[in-house]
């Protein structure tokens, strides 16, 4: 072991010397050290710019719109006839279309998502979970255009075979398919919430002789309640913002109705129709895009903030 003990002094190369030499010409790396944080700061501020860009675009053009159409009229009238000789701009038909499709989606996704979460978190063995969770992730990864195709060419014709009153385009079938699309989201977020309920709480209940079911409903779900609510709210936000499924399968009827067998247009589908059409820049119909988009943006923003508020309260519990 003692051999070669003078490794440092016997060194053919004197490293410390070389380092001292190199230090003198290190101004370049000193410059990097100062420049990099500023450059990264600029990159990080792009996300802020995006938000400003969204708000600015929406507000600026929406204000143009509200100069032509009073804001009161926009939010309270039920006539939406942008292309007629005497154009009417009431957003209520779009809001009703959006809300109805969202309600249908949540009727599917809420219970099924939650029950899936209960199964995965409370009942399933590790093995089963390892199979099911990636499969649900695949479901979540399918592009929405594919769901739109599925709703239009499969689900609608299928329902029509035993319910002939259903229109070829209708709000029911995209609503249902949207529900399927949102299941994985609610399932996984609710499962996270239920998983973070400490096991000791569960064991306390089970040890009293309660069944799994009783433990789940009386102990786990109350403890994970705000997390579950947050997942529902995010699901709603997702449904409100969903575009392609409703655009394809629900058509473009702008009637103010609550008949789910009929075609209805959502806010998102209206934006697709008008922007893809020949709305000339500067026309009222062009500006109406931004007024509708602003409404949509505010809806989803409120939902997202609500979800954050609810889940933050949840975090304080433990």
């Amino acid at each position: 072991m003692a051999k070669n003990s003078d490794s440092k002094t016997n060194n053919a190369v004197n490293v410390s010397e070389m380092i001292v030499q190199n230090k003198k010409k290190k101004s370049m790396s000193n410059l990097m050290e100062k420049l990099v944080p500023s450059f990264l700061f600029l990159l990080a501020s792009i996300t802020v710019l995006t938000t400003i860009g969204i708000l600015y675009t929406l507000l600026l053009e929406a204000i143009q719109f509200f100069k032509a159409v009073p804001i009161w009229e926009f939010f309270t009238t039920t006539e939406l006839k942008p292309l007629s000789q005497d154009p009417q701009f009431g957003v209520l038909p779009l809001i009703s279309g959006t809300l109805i499709s969202t309600v249908i989606a949540m009727i599917v996704a809420g219970p099924i998502g939650l029950m899936s979460a209960i199964y995965l978190s409370e009942y399933a063995s590790d093995k089963v979970r390892k199979v099911f969770k990636p499969l649900l992730e695949i479901l979540a990864g399918i592009p929405t255009i594919v769901y739109g195709f599925f709703a239009f060419t499969f689900v609608t014709p299928l329902i029509r075979t035993f319910w002939p009153e259903l229109g070829a385009t209708n709000i029911l079938s995209p609503g249902l398919v949207m529900g399927v699309m949102i299941i994985p989201m609610i399932a996984s977020l609710s499962e996270d919430a239920m998983n973070s309920v400490p096991n000791s709480i569960r064991e306390g209940s089970l040890a009293m002789g309660a069944t799994r079911l009783e433990t789940t409903f009386k102990v786990v779900i109350p403890a994970a309640f705000s997390g579950i609510i947050a997942s529902f709210v995010l699901g709603i936000s997702r449904a409100i913002g969903e575009t392609m499924i409703v655009t394809i399968a629900s058509g473009s009827s702008k009637n103010f109705t609550f008949d789910i067998t009929q075609s209805m247009q959502t806010m998102t589908a209206y934006i697709v129709e008008v922007s893809g059409g020949e709305a000339p820049a500067g026309s009222t119909i062009y500006y109406s895009l931004y007024a509708v988009a602003l409404t949509l943006f505010v809806f989803t923003l409120i939902m997202n903030l609500l979800a954050r508020y609810v889940s933050r309260k949840f975090r304080e519990e433990y």
Partner: peptide, 21 residues
């Protein structure tokens, strides 16, 4: 610390590893 020469690096690596037995 700015030492890039492959030969020098090879030598440093060997000496250092030897130094730590």
């Amino acid at each position: 610390h700015g030492i890039r020469n492959k030969k020098v690096l090879d030598e440093i690596v060997e000496t250092s590893l030897r130094g730590a037995y």
